[in-house]
Deep mutational scan, measured.
Amino acid sequence: ATVGSICDLNLKIPEINSSDMSAHVTSPSGRVTEAEIVPMGKNSHCVRFVPQEMGVHTVSVKYRGQHVTGSPFQFTVG
């Protein structure tokens, strides 16, 4: 992922509605921003955001307030 470019995290989660999901990204400096959740068809969801700084980011994806399997996810920008 690169700073200022759209970053997509694709998840396969069976039998949940994306409208019941939420996602937030925490940057290396601790800034928390909301991420967009895009339905991608049956059981597939895309978490979309634009990182604003380099370094390790943490993406928390929740369904009805509970982390989904594997969340929070970490990835490096830059």
Rank of each mutant, 00 (worst) to 15 (best):
F49L: 04
S18Y: 04
S44A: 04
S44M: 07
I16W: 03
E15V: 10
I6M: 05
F73M: 02
S71A: 05
T69F: 04
F73C: 01
G4R: 01
G4A: 00
Q52V: 09
I13V: 04
V3G: 04
P51T: 00
R64F: 12
K62W: 12
H45K: 10
V3T: 03
R64I: 11
I13D: 02
I16P: 02
V32A: 10
F73R: 03
E34G: 12
H67V: 05
T76G: 10
F75Q: 15
A23K: 06
G78C: 04
T2N: 02
C7T: 06
P14A: 06
V3E: 05
E34Q: 12
A23S: 05
R64D: 14
H24L: 09
V50Q: 04
P14W: 01
V3L: 06
Q74T: 15
K42A: 08
C7K: 00
Q52P: 14
G4W: 03
V61K: 00
G65D: 13
R31S: 12
G41W: 03
T33M: 12
T2F: 14
T26Y: 14
G30L: 07
I16S: 07
N43K: 08
S29P: 04
V68E: 02
N10D: 07
S5C: 01
H45Y: 06
Q74K: 14
G70W: 00
Q66D: 12
T69R: 06
P51F: 15
V59A: 01
Y63K: 11
A1K: 12
H57D: 02
P14N: 05
Y63Q: 10
E15T: 07
V47S: 00
E34Y: 12
E53D: 15
P14T: 03
V50W: 08
F49M: 05
S5F: 05
V32E: 11
H57S: 14
V59G: 00
K62S: 14
P39A: 10
V61P: 01
S60F: 07
G78M: 03
C46Q: 12
V47Q: 00
M40K: 15
C46D: 15
G4I: 06
K42S: 07
Q52M: 14
E34D: 13
S71F: 02
Q52G: 13
V68C: 04
S5N: 10
C7A: 06
K42L: 06
G70K: 13
S44D: 14
V56Y: 09
G41E: 14
N43R: 04
K12Y: 11
S18I: 01
S71D: 06
H67P: 08
V59L: 02
G78A: 05
T69L: 05
P39D: 14
S44T: 10
C7F: 14
E53I: 10
G78V: 03
S22F: 08
H45P: 15
T33V: 10
M54V: 15
V61Y: 00
Q74W: 08
K42Y: 02
A23M: 01
T2H: 02
H45N: 06
G78Q: 09
P14Q: 01
T76W: 03
Y63M: 13
G78W: 01
M40I: 06
R48G: 00
C7P: 00
V25L: 12
H45T: 15
I6A: 08
K12Q: 12
P14S: 06
R31K: 14
H24S: 13
E36S: 13
F49P: 02
N43S: 12
G41Y: 05
E15Q: 06
V68G: 02
G41C: 07
V68D: 06
S60R: 08
G4F: 06
G70V: 11
S5P: 01
N43V: 06
K62A: 12
C7I: 09
S60Y: 09
H45A: 10
F75I: 15
N17S: 11
V77L: 02
T58S: 12
S5Q: 13
P51R: 04
R48E: 01
T58D: 10
V25Y: 08
P72K: 14
K12M: 12
V59Y: 00
P14D: 03
V68S: 04
T26M: 10
N17A: 10
I37F: 13
E15Y: 10
S60V: 11
V61L: 05
G4L: 01
E53Y: 03
K62I: 07
G30S: 15
G55P: 00
R64C: 09
V47W: 00
C46A: 07
S5A: 06
F75K: 15
S71V: 03
S27Y: 05
H57Q: 10
G78I: 01
E53V: 13
R31F: 11
A1E: 08
G4Q: 01
V25C: 09
E15C: 07
F49S: 09
G30D: 10
E34H: 08
V50I: 10
T76A: 11
F73W: 13
G4S: 00
K12T: 11
I6G: 00
A23P: 15
G65K: 10
K12F: 10
V59I: 13
C46P: 06
S44Q: 15
K12P: 02
M40H: 12
V59M: 00
V68K: 03
T69G: 12
C46F: 01
R48D: 01
V56M: 11
M40S: 15
S19Y: 03
Q74V: 14
P39G: 13
V25S: 13
A23I: 01
S18M: 05
V3R: 03
S18H: 06
T76H: 08
D20Y: 07
V3P: 02
S60E: 11
P72D: 01
H57C: 14
G65M: 09
C46H: 06
P39K: 10
Q52Y: 08
F49E: 01
T76E: 14
A1S: 04
M40D: 15
H57M: 09
P51N: 07
G70H: 10
Y63E: 13
A23G: 11
H24W: 11
R64N: 15
I13Q: 02
N10S: 14
T26D: 11
V50S: 02
A23Y: 00
S5G: 03
T26I: 12
K12L: 09
V77C: 08
V56L: 13
E34V: 12
G65H: 08
F75R: 15
I16Y: 11
T69K: 11
N43P: 14
T2A: 03
S60A: 12
G70T: 09
T26W: 06
V32Y: 12
P14R: 04
F73H: 01
H67K: 08
F49H: 03
M21T: 03
H45R: 07
T69Y: 07
K12E: 15
A23F: 01
G55L: 01
V77S: 07
E53R: 10
V47Y: 00
C7W: 07
R31L: 12
G78T: 05
A1M: 11
V68F: 04
R31V: 12
T26K: 09
R48L: 00
V32S: 09
T26Q: 08
H45W: 00
T33N: 08
F49W: 14
C7N: 00
V50F: 04
T76L: 08
Q66P: 05
S29F: 04
S18C: 07
V25M: 02
C46G: 09
E34W: 08
V59S: 03
Q66Y: 05
P39S: 11
G78D: 04
K42E: 12
V59D: 00
I6S: 06
Q66L: 08
L11V: 13
H45C: 04
C46L: 00
V68W: 06
T58I: 13
F75E: 11
A23T: 05
I13P: 00
I13H: 00
R48C: 00
T58Q: 14
V56F: 09
S18E: 03
T69A: 13
Q52I: 06
V47M: 02
H24E: 10
V47D: 00
K62D: 13
V47H: 00
T69W: 01
G30A: 14
N43C: 05
G4M: 03
A1P: 05
P39M: 08
T76I: 09
A23V: 03
H67F: 02
F49C: 10
V50C: 05
S44N: 14
P51K: 07
T26S: 09
H57V: 13
Q66K: 11
V47T: 02
V50K: 07
E53L: 08
I13L: 09
I16F: 02
S60G: 11
R64A: 13
Q66M: 10
V61N: 02
G55W: 04
S44V: 03
R64P: 04
Y63C: 14
P39I: 08
G4D: 04
E53F: 08
V38A: 12
V47E: 01
T69C: 09
S71M: 04
R48K: 08
F75P: 15
V3M: 05
H24Q: 09
S22P: 12
V56S: 10
G65L: 11
T26H: 12
T58H: 11
I16K: 06
P51W: 04
H57Y: 08
G70A: 11
H45I: 15
A23W: 00
V77Y: 01
E15M: 08
N17C: 08
R48N: 03
G65I: 10
T69Q: 05
I6H: 05
E34C: 11
F73E: 04
F73K: 04
